[in-house]
Amino acid sequence: MATIDYDLELKRAGANATGGWRRVLFLARRHVLGAAGLVIMTVFVLTAIFADFIARYDPLTVDAAHALARPSAAHWMGTDSFGRDVFSRIIHGARISLAVGIGSTALGGTIGVIVGLTSGYLAGWFDLVFQRVSDILQALPLLVLALVMTAALGPSLPNVILAIAIPLIPTVARVIRANTLALREQPFVEAAKSIGMSEVRIAIRHVLPNTLAPLIVLATAQLGSTILTEASLSFLGLGIPEPYPSWGRMLSESAAEYVRTAPWLVIFPGIAISLAVFGTNLFGDALRDILDPRQRG
C-alpha cells in the first residue's frame, strides 16, 4: 500500500483551519472563484463609498471643449458627448448600482420574509391567496414587471428601487415559506407550543432565525440580478433620470450613435456592469455552497 502523508491529507481537509482568519483563508482557497467574487464585490462597495475621493472630475460637470475625448492621461476612460469624464461617471455609477441593488434587495427581502413567514405559519386562506398572487407575479418576467411599474410611477431612484423590489417579494417569500413549513413540524417548535408560547413569538424567536442562512444565500444571489435590472431599466430610459450617472443610461446614450466613433463610451460601462454582476454571482454561488449545500444545483 502506498505510503500516506497524513499531514498533507489533513491540511487538505482543513484540519488546522478551524477558527477566525485561518478558516476564511481555507475557505477562500477551496472556493477560489467565490474569493474572486468577494474581492470584486469589496472593490465595488469601496468604490461606491469613496466615490468622491476616487473620481478625478465632477461626474456632472459639462465641458464642451473636451467632448468625446479619447482615453488619455487626463481622462483615463475618455469623455462623453458633453465632455463629462467617463471614469468619474463610472465611479459614481457604482454608488447608484449599489444603492439600487441593496435597497431593492433589502426592501423586497424584508417584505418577502414577512409574507413568507405569515404564509407558511398561518397557512389557510392567507397562504392560498399569497400562493396564487405569487404565481401570477412570477409568470411575468422580472424586467417587464419593473418596466410597467416605472412607466406608471415615473423614473426616480426610489421608484426604481420599488419597481425592482416588488417582483423580488414572491421569490423570497416562497423560499421562506418552504423553510417555515419544514420548521413548523420540528419538535423544538412543538416544545415552544407546549410551554404556552404565542404563535407570533414562536414565529419570530424559533422559526425566523433558522431561515437566515437560506435568506442570505438568496439575497446575495438576487443582488446581481437587481443590478442588471436597474441597468436594463436605465438603458430603456425608465431608470435613473438624467443627469445622474447610471451605467445602463451611459450605455443607452452612446450605444447607437457612438459605438463606432467613440467605443470607449460603450466598452467601459459594459465592463462595469458585467464585472459587478459577475462578482456578486460568483460570491453568491460560493456562499450557497458553504452555508446551504442542499441548494446546490
Binding site: Y6, E9, L10, A13, A15, T18, F26
Partner: peptide
C-alpha cells in the same frame, strides 16, 4: 489489522 481513517477539518 484493518485500519480506516477519516481526514476531516477537525483532525484525523
Amino acid at each position: 489489522n484493518l485500519k480506516t481513517v477519516f481526514f476531516t477539518n477537525s483532525g484525523l
